[in-house]
Design a protein around this nucleic acid. Structure first.
Length: 428
RNA sequence: GUGGUCGUAGCUCAGCUGGUAGAGCACUCGGUUGUGGUCCGAGAUGUCGCGGGUUCGAGCCCCGUCGAUCACCCCA
């Protein structure tokens, strides 16, 4: 086929269903703004080294899923596979952390991972995320989680749950790791599994094979190795979530795939999605900023997959009525006869100047066809303007949902329509 | 990267054991000389994903390829 196709594994949203994407993204962004997070708009590509150092070379994301290429100046560039590293880079580069702390930022945009596409897994996906940098109070952990929660609730999602755990601090993890590796020695693992364990021993906790799961049920758990401080912090986060009325389950088997996570980590899981059930996740990354050459500030954030949330909302049937919810213009004008088209175009243009959304029938359509176009567009009112109207200065304004008509003066069109619209708003 | 399923009109799909394409919806026009949503009538649209092979003949069989989809892996 000679026709162009979208690249493999990308999702696209076009009318009328693009309104679903818009709906989800806007609610998530609004939730972040409500909690005092400010927009940061970043490039979609960065120095490859940033992700290697930030995300970690041993992770699957960095070792085999990055879109990396050389630019014309011979620099190694990578399409961002996640958001946190870029935010940290920008904060450090522009000294955003030199003022009041914490720095609270939100972002949205496309991310890229060269994986085999699957339900809810795309090579280009869209995330809304937030980062709170420079505060390690448990209150901010709870806040970050609550922002995601509030966003999901605003969208109307119900069938999801929140898993949380704590990875503790460096000492906690080191102690655990020793015992965990010792435990692995008692198991009879195949080579591939052993290799995975070597990369990240925690990985085996979420292995899907039943025999591994049984074996791992006896493995030492990181939660039991938390230092006193980490344990107290985690306990506080839990009690705050409870006070916020946010239900959660402590899942000690939860594993996150990026190396920078420390302390509190969490994941939102939706039931209606198939294998890729995570709709959002995040956690603390206390060493990351120093690791990238900045000051040693703690941080916590999340990334929410907008594509997956759209899928989840669809699975819950939240969009049954969106065909009719399509937003139409306030007024749709129909020119009758070639001669009145110019006049109508001028009318439409001045209506728009007055802030009234309006459109007109284009092309050579009979009145019936033009009326149909007005109907399809979802317009609130329509108005036919032909020779008669132009000479008399009067026209008939039609309410498209009730079918009622009323005579109006063309000269007063924008004021008449805007008062109709505002009285309508009052009634609702 | 590995494996299963699938690929026919704009959309959803039918097409018997191979005999060279159909329905519904949508679209356009008309019934109603200047008024949409219902109804009736008419019309247009396909290199049957692409390339090759088998055959007198392929939408159907075989191979390859691209894409979709689902799972592994991994994650949003």
């Amino acid at each position: 086929m000679s026709k162009f196709q979208a690249p493999k594994g990308v999702s696209e949203y076009f009318p009328p269903l693009s309104s679903r994407f818009e709906f989800v993204r806007n609610h998530l962004a609004a939730s972040a703004q409500t909690a005092g997070y400010q927009l940061i708009e970043l490039p979609v590509f960065e120095d490859t080294e940033l992700f290697k150092r930030g995300v970690g070379e041993s992770t699957d994301v960095v070792s085999k899923e990055m879109y990396t290429f050389e630019d014309r100046g011979g620099r190694s560039i990578t399409l961002r596979p996640e958001g946190t590293a870029g935010v940290m880079r920008s904060v450090i580069e522009h000294n955003l952390d030199k003022g009041q702390l914490p720095v609270k930022l939100w972002y949205s945009g496309q991310f890229f991972r060269a994986e085999r596409p699957q339900a809810g897994r795309y090579r280009q996906f869209y995330q809304v995320g937030i980062e709170a940098i420079g505060a390690n109070d448990p209150q901010i952990d709870a806040e970050v989680i609550s922002v995601a929660w509030r966003g999901f609730k605003a969208i109307g999602l119900k069938n999801f749950r929140l898993d949380i755990t704590s990875l503790g601090d460096g000492a906690s993890r080191a102690a655990h790791r020793v015992d965990l590796l010792r435990f692995f020695d008692t198991l009879d693992l195949d080579e591939a599994t052993r290799a995975r364990a070597a990369l990240n021993p925690l990985r085996l906790f979420d292995d899907k094979r039943p025999e591994i799961q049984t074996a791992m049920s006896k493995a030492p758990r990181l939660l039991d190795y938390l230092s006193e401080e980490s344990a107290a912090h985690f306990a506080k986060v839990q009690s705050l979530l409870t006070s916020f009325g946010i239900p959660f389950v402590v899942n000690p088997l939860m594993v996150r795939g990026l190396d920078y996570y420390t302390g509190t980590t969490f994941e939102f899981v939706h039931e209606g999605l198939g294998a890729q059930s995570g709709i959002g996740g995040g956690g603390r990354y206390d060493g990351l900023m120093a690791q990238l050459g900045g000051s040693d500030l703690s941080g916590i954030g999340f990334g929410i997959g907008v594509d997956r949330v759209v899928l989840a909302a669809e699975a819950e049937g939240l969009f049954v009525d969106d065909e009719s919810a399509r937003t139409g213009v306030d007024l749709f004008l129909i020119a009758l006869g070639e001669d009145s088209k110019d006049e109508v175009a001028v009318l439409v243009n001045s209506l728009r100047d007055a802030g009234i959304s309006s459109d007109m029938a284009y092309g050579d359509r009979a009145l019936k066809g033009a009326m149909k176009a007005a109907d399809k567009s979802g317009a609130r009112y329509s108005l036919v303007v032909g020779e008669n109207e132009l000479s008399s200065g009067e026209a008939t304004l039609k309410d498209m949902s009730s079918g009622e008509e009323q005579a109006i003066r063309i000269g007063d069109l924008s004021s008449t329509v805007s008062s109709l619209l505002s009285s309508e708003k009052k009634r609702n």
